[in-house]
Write a protein that binds this DNA or RNA. Structure first.
Lengths: 255, 255
DNA sequence: TATATTTAGTGTCACTGGGACATTTAATTA
DNA sequence: TAATTAAATGTCCCAGTGACACTAAATATA
């Protein structure tokens, strides 16, 4: 539960001089996904300052025109500060700009989404944040109340992820270096929310020629499985043909 | 030929005080496509002011935080000012933000792309533009030198359009109210740059259930053709299954 | 040691969508 | 009246994939 103090926030906004700017504020927010305990999770930080003080929000911040050379650099910088991950799968999702989303006035945020494996990550709150944590995403939603329009962003972004997973190999970026096809399939199923016929799945993944056998095997309880890895210098993005009939209407289109 | 005066521009930039802003400038640019004389065209305006004075550029401008409620409204306003079209197919393409794209300093532009039928359009230069015209797009390029990074934007946006045309019905937004399947197929072929098998094309378009017979016929020289129209309240966006094998790597992904 | 269990991985069939291409249809024009 | 041309349909075949049965290889247990 977040404990947003509406009165303190009102006082803060009272003192805030929005008319000082003729330009919208420009931020970057990143929806950072990972798979944890067999569920899709998103990284959230608890805000240390007004507005939405103490509320949870996506990882993001203002573009720093002195430090950042590009928008994407802003996203990478914030992401690395929080997770230590330097080379995530990072894709621009959409840009939202309007008068209402931030009580301080006209603001623009460019939303990225990142996919990172949950291994080897040590979360750091850093300045500007009280706390930081992974939260389970179910049906595009999270149990905490989110700051600004972040709930809506998360919803749309999750839909986009699901939509892309139908015809791409994006989930490989949620996997550790080595993984079995069974493990990969589980991640697909967990994002899509429905089981996939395993023979078809193997046929498609192997047919896409984006994976290669690592030479090692996974010795769990039962029959060992081949450990695969992403081929070197593989495009970060590629089609794997349709998984079932793709829905009629497309997600992620700004109409 | 544009006649950009580099010395005058240098003087202008000399006088320009970039340090007055701690925020990037925020603009919207729209790649407005149409089909004219059996070729894909893009709408360009000739700049009246520095920088890139007299150069041709995409239709766009700064977000006006007093007039515009949303980013998309900025795009629509500019587009209507130039073409008179109020309800184009308008989709957000991508946002580019960096230090170098504008000589005045850090700038962000959100790029939209619009599809409009070439009928019923009367171009208006309006203020800020010396001239305005449609220019043929060939291989994602145009014969004029474009301002800022607009040549690159056009290139990428054209690629995205082509990619989408492979599996969507977007070209219907380039058509007049009534059109025959033959005419629609020509537009597909012209964007894709390769012929499409006509039986498959009809099967797909009619199978998508997005068109309906208007009741009227097109009486040209030979056998008359059924005039179709877009179904009322049709999603502005929908899949029509694959046209041939979709390429391996996806366009439009910000890596 | 033998058998059950479980997950990994394969074989194969049938269905579907779409490319290829031949055929028919309906108008105009010579 | 026949030729011409684009519109529209008929049909075949093939690739990709869902469905599902089957084999394989390890551990667990009797």
């Amino acid at each position: 539960m977040s404990s947003r103090n509406k009165e303190a926030e009102a006082a803060f906004l009272e003192a805030y001089d929005a008319s000082a700017f003729e330009r919208p504020s420009t931020a970057v927010d990143t929806v950072i996904f990972t798979v944890l305990h067999d569920a899709l999770h998103v990284l959230l930080v608890q805000r240390a300052e007004h507005p939405y003080k103490d509320c949870w929000s996506l990882v993001g911040g203002y573009v720093d025109i002195h430090r950042d050379r590009t928008l994407k650099e802003t996203a990478k910088r914030k992401l690395e500060e929080k997770t230590g991950v330097k080379t995530p799968y990072l894709e621009q999702f959409e840009t939202i700009g309007n008068k209402e989303r931030d009580p301080r006035g006209w603001s623009i945020t460019t939303v990225y989404f990142a996919l990172i494996p949950s291994q080897d990550i040590t979360l750091r709150s850093g300045k500007g944040a009280v706390d930081i944590k992974w939260l389970k995403v179910e049906g595009g939603q999270v149990t905490e109340e989110l700051a600004f329009d972040h709930a809506e962003i998360l919803q749309r972004c999750t839909e986009r992820l699901r939509n892309k997973v139908l015809y791409t190999s994006l989930p490989v970026y949620l996997m550790p270096k080595l993984f079995t096809l069974g493990e990969l399939q589980k991640v697909y199923e967990l994002i899509l929310g429905s089981p996939i016929e395993h023979k078809s799945f193997r046929r498609r993944m192997l047919g896409a020629e984006i994976l290669e056998e690592s030479g090692e095997m996974s010795y769990s309880s039962k029959r060992p499985a081949i450990l695969y890895q992403l081929k070197k210098s593989q495009d970060p993005y590629f089609f794997v043909r349709n998984l079932e009939a793709a829905g009629k209407s497309a997600a992620g289109v700004d109409v």
